[in-house]
């Protein structure tokens, strides 16, 4: 924690300490809506990761032009173009996934986690750092989407990683079938809220436990 390189620190911040979904609670609409299966979470996660990284790069590259009165239209222009690009790319290379994610790909435009990174970070920092910030935040959001997707799929359908063929091609895959059918509530909208609540609570629990009882080894090394 103290002697990590800036890159690791940034990754840690995106994946855990300032996770856009778990801590900042941004971008909840897509997070709650598409995470019915692992592969859906992965698909939207990768799309969001791409958009936030490229948007950070573009915003940072044009940051000297940014004037406060037109900055929001600039972000919107950049983000909307990137989302259109990723939608075209999905339609061309992973059409099955594009059909299941449907409207949630275009709706990445409205993911406020992306505008937040543009405003808070990319508009004030050089390109390299902004790219890293986008990668870290995007990875944190994608990881959360995958985790919630996997959890809801396991409880709601009784499978693990079904339909990965939507991403990687090949024959339809049933994934690992644990039980036939599942507890339906998990894949309905309330299940999304329960799952997110569990994830947030779990993170806070882990953080608190670590604060209260630092590992014995840690103290010795810190001196």
């Amino acid at each position: 924690m103290t002697d990590n390189s800036p890159i690791l620190q940034k990754l840690r911040s995106g994946l855990w300490d300032d996770n856009p979904g778990l801590v900042q609670l941004l971008g909840l609409c897509p997070l709650l809506a598409v995470t019915t299966t692992f592969v859906n979470g992965l698909g939207l996660g990768i799309a969001t990761l791409f958009v936030v990284t490229c948007s950070n790069i573009l915003v940072s590259a044009t940051r000297t032009w940014i004037r406060s009165e037109i900055r929001i239209p600039m972000y919107v222009l950049i983000i909307a173009s990137l989302v259109t690009c990723i939608e075209l790319i999905f339609k061309a290379y992973v059409p099955a996934l594009d059909r299941t994610l449907g409207i949630f790909i275009p709706l990445i435009v409205t993911n406020c986690a992306i505008v937040a990174r543009a405003e808070i970070f990319a508009s004030r920092n050089p390109i390299g750092a902004s790219m890293l910030d986008g990668l870290a935040m995007g990875a944190g959001f994608a990881a959360l989407l995958c985790a919630i997707g996997a959890f809801r799929e396991l409880i709601g359908r009784g499978t693990i990683m079904a339909n990965l063929d939507m991403f990687f091609g090949g024959d339809p895959q049933t994934g690992l079938v644990i039980v036939d059918g599942g507890f339906l509530l998990a894949i309905l909208p309330p299940g999304a809220f329960f799952s997110l609540a569990l994830a947030v609570a779990g993170k806070n629990y882990l953080d608190q436990r670590r604060k209260k009882a630092p590992k014995p080894g840690e103290r010795i090394h810190a001196r």
């Binding site: 044009t62 032009w65 037109i70 600039m74 222009l77 950049i78």
Partner: peptide, 9 residues
């Protein structure tokens, strides 16, 4: 500025 950015996008 907006026009240029729109052209790039």
């Amino acid at each position: 500025i907006l026009g240029t950015l729109a052209a790039i996008c």
